[in-house]
Write a protein that binds this DNA or RNA. Structure first.
Lengths: 230, 230
DNA sequence: TAGATTGTTAATCGATTAACAATC
DNA sequence: TAGATTGTTAATCGATTAACAATC
């Protein structure tokens, strides 16, 4: 491992913390919008839905941006976190697979407001090409390399059927895209330097179903909490 | 804690394992479809995208369903996992908020094939009520309690704007729904016996953006991997 | 100063991993 | 039996939590 200059040191931040930083950013934005200038770790933790202990531990990886006995300046902390997670610059996104889900993602306003610009929609089906979705024309999948190069795409969203996803991923990697958000219910093989995050809707429901089953059977066994061990 | 009968013992399975069981189930289904009758932990792990060590550890929480020196019977193991996660029965789902995302979720075929039946679509906006989406008519949100009772709904999907999500969650809890999949970018407060899983599309992109930023700056610092420490 | 709240420490907990004895 | 592969153990790693010294 080579050393880093102190400026961009940003010592290794644990993955669990990285995953929560956007949550804090959102809570801070809400506080700022509400006109709050300063908050305690307790306030911010409540707004983000975590414990204050966890929040302070997370923030400690970024630096020392609060004031003991006082709290955090909302706008200042917001800016520090935004910088840390690269929110200060725009990211160009391509969506591949413009079915129901792809269309919904293309229309999703939450991306734009967080610095993500959807620059192209691609689909392999000629029937969909030429359609206009969310102000963009659906282009042939073959345009991928050109689109990536032209718009400096850094993130791709895969919303194709499972059987097409690996081929799409291979093409994305070949085109130089190293960050993929995968909605296709399949495992993608990619080189080590490519990050894949997976959103699997069925699996989320299956996890809930597992918990529901346990709750239901617990109720049958203990119809009355007062009963004790009889 | 009360004791459980051995039959439904299902000793506490770690959450991380629960989250992977659907992955194994999917991999086993694919193997069965391909006509494979038996597989090793190595085979199955590869198909599910995990290490064989992790797979065996996970399966050990369910019981001892393999044969040393031989491997696992695909169909038998598939059935055991399906039973464990409650896949053997249907779950009734209501979707609240029928915008772009809600429509896409309503049309998503992956739910149905895994035992999830979307029984109703609800939206507070009169303009959407009466629309037909994926073969269902969009009903007023006020119908919630009636729908839950009538169809024995156990899982709700919230796809409303953030500002409406907490009110929707409160109504769901009041109606007796104890499992919520939340797509609204907001923290939901619910009682302890209610499970909420969150899918946050912007946050997924933000996490990727963080990693992208680190990759990009690493390249600037080390333009040539061969250069060494100079 | 006294009261408040951060940043950090140390303990605990849960998840992952590698190795191998059990056993087909 | 010899070879293969599971199921389990023990070590390691990473994340969470509670407590409190530092300090505004």
């Amino acid at each position: 491992m080579s050393e880093r200059t102190p400026a961009e040191a940003s010592r290794d931040i644990p993955e669990a913390t990285v995953a929560r930083l956007p949550l804090y950013l959102r809570a801070l934005t809400a506080l700022a919008d509400a006109g709050t200038a300063r908050c305690s770790s307790e306030d911010l933790a409540a707004a983000a839905g975590v414990t204050s202990s966890k929040l302070r531990k997370d923030l400690s990886y970024l630096g020392s941006y609060g004031t003991r006995g006082v709290g955090y300046e909302v706008e200042f902390l917001r800016h520090q976190i935004a910088r840390e997670i690269g929110q200060t610059q725009d990211h160009h996104v391509v969506i591949v697979g413009i079915g129901n889900l792809g269309q919904a993602l293309a229309s999703f306003s939450g991306f734009r407001s967080r610095g993500f610009r959807v620059v192209a929609l691609l689909d392999a089906a000629p029937a969909r090409q030429g359609d206009e979705v969310a102000g963009l024309v659906v282009r042939p999948f073959e345009d991928l390399a050109a689109v990536v190069a032209e718009h400096r795409v850094t993130i791709a969203v895969v919303a194709t059927p499972a059987h097409a996803a690996q081929d799409v991923a291979d093409a994305l990697v070949a085109a130089g895209v190293r960050n993929i958000l995968n909605f296709a219910p399949t495992v993608l093989s990619v080189p080590d330097d490519v990050d894949v995050r997976k959103v699997d809707l069925s699996i989320e429901l299956q996890i809930l179903a597992y918990h529901e089953q346990r709750k239901a059977s617990a109720e049958v066994e203990e119809p009355d909490m007062e009963r004790g061990l009889a």
